[in-house]
Design a protein around this nucleic acid. Sequence first.
DNA 1: TGCTGTATTGCATAGCTATGCAAAATAGTG
DNA 2: CACTATTTTGCATAGCTATGCAATACAGCA
Lengths: 336, 336
Amino acid sequence: MSTSAKNVPAATDVARLAGVSQSAVSRAFTSGASISSKTRSKVMAAAEELGYRPNQLARSLLRGRSQLIGVVLGNMENPFFPLALETLSKQLNTHGHKTLVFTNEANQQADTSIEDMLNYRVDALILMATTLSSSLAEQCQAAGIPVVFVNRISHAMCCSSVTGDNDHGARLIAQHLVDAGYQRIAFMAGIETSSTSRDRELAFTDALIAMGRDKPMRVVGHFNRVGAMQAMRQLLEQAQRPDAVFCANDHMAMAAIDVARYEYSLTPGTDIGIAGFDDIPHAHWPGYDITTYSQPLDALISQAVERVLSQSNQYDAIHTVVKGNLIMRSSTSPTQ
Amino acid sequence: MSTSAKNVPAATDVARLAGVSQSAVSRAFTSGASISSKTRSKVMAAAEELGYRPNQLARSLLRGRSQLIGVVLGNMENPFFPLALETLSKQLNTHGHKTLVFTNEANQQADTSIEDMLNYRVDALILMATTLSSSLAEQCQAAGIPVVFVNRISHAMCCSSVTGDNDHGARLIAQHLVDAGYQRIAFMAGIETSSTSRDRELAFTDALIAMGRDKPMRVVGHFNRVGAMQAMRQLLEQAQRPDAVFCANDHMAMAAIDVARYEYSLTPGTDIGIAGFDDIPHAHWPGYDITTYSQPLDALISQAVERVLSQSNQYDAIHTVVKGNLIMRSSTSPTQ
DNA sequence: TGCTGTATTGCATAGCTATGCAAAATAGTG
DNA sequence: CACTATTTTGCATAGCTATGCAATACAGCA
């Protein structure tokens, strides 16, 4: 009883039923093709009757464009990425593209997964929180497949990227923490090899030094919750405990706040200042209320989509920086 | 300079360079095909040199199997779904399948997005937090495409489903709340049309009544944070304020806790008991620590994957229920 | 060496649709 | 109505790979 149906009708079946040629069927489903409305409706009726739907695989094969966009994501634990995927998928959809998704181990090279995607002849690649070997990057370039990194800058120079304003944001945070009167300021890095974490750290450190402060104490949270909690404990066990921490993203800042509050009975803001980066929705949940620098998701994603879908200048590596805003909240108000 | 490269080599190019036929190239890339190791290595060398990779679109077209699985997700705001996607994508990958993803508006019919996916000849559909018109479900059945709902039961009877044990879980929660001594127990529904919410509500209500309680006060949180916050306020504004709430999932329970604690200065557990469902990682964050009934993600997903990839019995609608556990935490300890 | 049995190989075709080109049909004009 | 300009249609082919089948090469054995 479980015999495979295999009833999937093809264009020729529809053609036969409608009494037209296969070409007519094809044209009926191609907007802008040269076909009379009369035959189109004949075709549509027959198609409806048979349950025909054009085979996108054949179409893609012939056209050389699959309308598929490969997306590689890292850690789904950080809400930033699911939300990014959601808006990305929606935006691609309005442009008539589908999303072929692959979730990678955080910060792993995405090579093997990307090779698979290339086999499907994806029209472009959007990479978040992953790395790409330069050899594969060259292959993409050779094949004419645009690659754009989001929230990450590639080492392979041929790839474009769209990021938030890590430099400016980190400097504003530094300034803000100093203005607020914090004295011993620390930094919690994410994944050390990621440009995201490094850029924020460099700018943050630089700004502090420029204001006459010492180089901040430094700890590594690996962009995940467990790592950030450990890192925070490490900070709070210091003899000279810091009185403020800039975490390289909000997700780690949340973990830091939980450790400070529930393991060390410190009140965020007054006892210890904690800042993040991204402005994910959770950052203004009442239990966290994190000072942060925003990465506007819609803008970030639409830039990436634009870059990927615009045919021109595919081979120029364009690094787009989307500005955000410093958002001051109670996690860094010592006077309150 | 931005002329499209179009250098993508095909099997015939490799064949020419290697001095073999195109069939040989095909066989070299097909595991288990009849080919001598000598020619295979010749082919591989030539392929390497040209940067050839087999065109999965052509392969899929010919084989009638695309190795693509369509996945439709709802609200990415609830961490349950991103995590589910992550494990799903990984599991599919180990089985040699790719994930074609679509994020839908919560609880919308996924018809249009699914039609697009059908055009790509997905081998199967996995639907989370969406609905499917019965006509489209029939089409899928006719085309031999297995459809399985995860965390949701379809109205169209022909589709399989994998869910947590909503009935048992809700009953255990009811029992637990009564045992803990709560008196005025309320229920926060999710999306009213979803089977998930309804099943939990029915069992919960039934269990309470069986224990001689009144039918619980009822409020609707729509499975999202804003909705849940409003619903919680509504509850707490009652003259006869409830002293315990069972929220249809953890995501809403978190919102409920925030409202109780930060807007009404109530201590969860002692002043008001709050329970959830799912046991998402956040449920044991120290700021929440939610009593809940677990939905084991790995088990849930591997059941779904198995159902979808097993060729046999595609047309029997099998409803799999994965058991979880009641997990008691401080959000429902009135004595503490 | 000569035979048979097996492992490899190439040929030709199928799978489904889009599109250039020429033929046919239609519309437009006097 | 005759004739041209335009639209619509069908034919044939291309796009890339997998696979049945027949042909070839190879190995094994006496």
